[in-house]
Amino acid sequence: MSSRIPSLNWLRVFEAAARTESFARAAVQLNMSAAAVSQQVKALETRLGTPLFHRHAHAVTLTEAGRAYLPSVQQSLLMLETATTGLFGETREQRLYVQSVLLFAHGILAKGLSAFQARHPDINLSLSTGNIVSDFANRFTDLQIVFGNPALFGTEGDELIREVLYPVAPPAIAAQIKTPQDLLSYTLIEVSTHRASWPHWFETLRLPAGQAQYFFADNSIMAAELSASGLGIALARAPASDRIMGMSGLVPCLPEAKVAGQEAYHLIYPSLTTMRTPARMFRDWLLDYSTAVQTR
C-alpha cells in the first residue's frame, strides 16, 4: 500500500503559497517560477484528493481543508529544521512565525521590524495578524502578541505595553470640543472588542455619559478611518494607535483628559525553556523595543 505522505518539496511550496497568498510571491521566496509553484501545488492537491486553494485573478486563498492542513505542515517543517540544526549545526536560514493583534502590528511592530531583520538577517520572519480571541486559537505560531487577559491565549508570557485612552477627531470637530459634555453632541465610535472603551473613559473621569450615541467597529484602525470620514469621535489607544491616528489626520479633542486602559499587550508562548533560538532572539529584541517605545 503506497504512502499518502506528500513530497517534502510540495509541502514547502504549499506553506509558502499559503503564507504569501500568492503563487508569484511564493515563487520569488523559493527561487522558482510561478508556473512551477502552481504545478507543485496541483500535484499536492491531486495526491491529497482535495483542493487546498481558491484561485483568484492575482492571489490565492486557502480552502477550509487548506486552513486545517497549514498549521500541521508549518509545525512539521519547523520540527525538521530544529532537528537538523540540533544534529548538524545552524542552518543558513531559520523560519519564525509570529502572530500579532492588528493594532500592535500596525502601530508598534511595523516601525521596528526592519531593525530586527537587519540584526538577524538569517531569520525568515512570517507575521500574521488577528483581532479577537478566536483568531489566535488552533493556529501554529512560535509567538503571539495579544491584548487582554493572557491566560486566554497561552501558558507563559511577558507584558509588553499598556495603553492610554483619549478622544480624537478631525481638527475641525476637535476644535468644537471644549468640555467632555460636548462629546455627547457627536456619535462616539466604539471598538466592540475592547473591554476598556468609552464607558470606561467616562467612568474613570467621573463624567456622566448621558445619552451617548455609539457606532460600533471591530478594530481601532477602522474606528480611526470612520472618524476621519466625519462619522464621529474615536478613542485613541496610545501608543499603539499613534500611527493610524496620525495617518488619518486625527487630533486630540481634550488633550488633558487621558485615561489609563485596563489591559495590556502581552507576548505569549508555550514555554520559555523549550523556545526555539529564533523565537528567543525575537523575544529579547521585542522586550527591549517595547520598553523604548513606552519611554519615548
Rank of each mutant, 00 (worst) to 15 (best):
V60T: 13
D122M: 07
A68F: 02
E225W: 04
A264R: 07
H120M: 01
A83W: 10
P180N: 12
Y214P: 04
M1I: 00
L87D: 08
P208V: 03
Q211N: 00
T46D: 11
Y186G: 11
V293Q: 10
T155W: 09
T61E: 13
S197C: 14
G107N: 01
I268P: 00
G261M: 05
T273M: 05
I189S: 01
G148F: 13
P180E: 09
V146Q: 08
D142M: 01
L78Y: 02
A209E: 12
W198Y: 12
W285P: 07
L127V: 06
A240T: 05
I233D: 07
T82L: 14
E21A: 15
V13M: 02
L207M: 10
R296A: 09
F216T: 09
P6S: 03
F215Y: 06
L127A: 02
A83I: 05
S3R: 03
S241Q: 03
A174N: 14
T291K: 10
S72L: 11
K42P: 00
E15C: 11
L286I: 07
D142L: 08
A57W: 12
H54C: 05
F104K: 08
M222R: 14
R55S: 15
I233F: 02
Q94E: 15
N31L: 03
F147K: 10
H200S: 08
Q181V: 09
Y186K: 12
I145V: 15
A43R: 08
A224I: 02
A175D: 15
R55D: 14
E203L: 02
L127E: 04
N124T: 10
R55T: 14
A24D: 10
Y214Q: 06
L152M: 15
L165Q: 07
S128P: 00
Q99N: 08
I244H: 06
P170A: 15
R206V: 07
S114H: 09
A175C: 11
T274F: 09
L207P: 03
Q99M: 03
R280H: 06
D284G: 02
I221H: 09
I244M: 08
E156V: 01
I5M: 03
L184P: 04
L48A: 03
M245V: 06
P6T: 04
T63N: 14
G49M: 04
Y289Q: 09
V13F: 00
Q294G: 11
M281L: 15
R47Q: 05
G66N: 07
P71R: 13
A240E: 08
Y269L: 03
A279V: 08
M247A: 14
R67Q: 08
G210M: 01
N138Y: 06
I233L: 01
F153Y: 15
A279M: 10
P239T: 10
V41P: 02
N9L: 13
R237P: 11
T277Y: 09
V60I: 15
S192M: 05
L103I: 02
S114E: 04
R4T: 00
M1Y: 00
A260Y: 08
A68P: 04
Y214E: 07
H54M: 11
R237H: 09
I173F: 02
L103V: 05
L102E: 02
N31Q: 10
A115Y: 02
L125Y: 04
L11K: 00
E225V: 05
M79G: 05
A228N: 01
S76F: 11
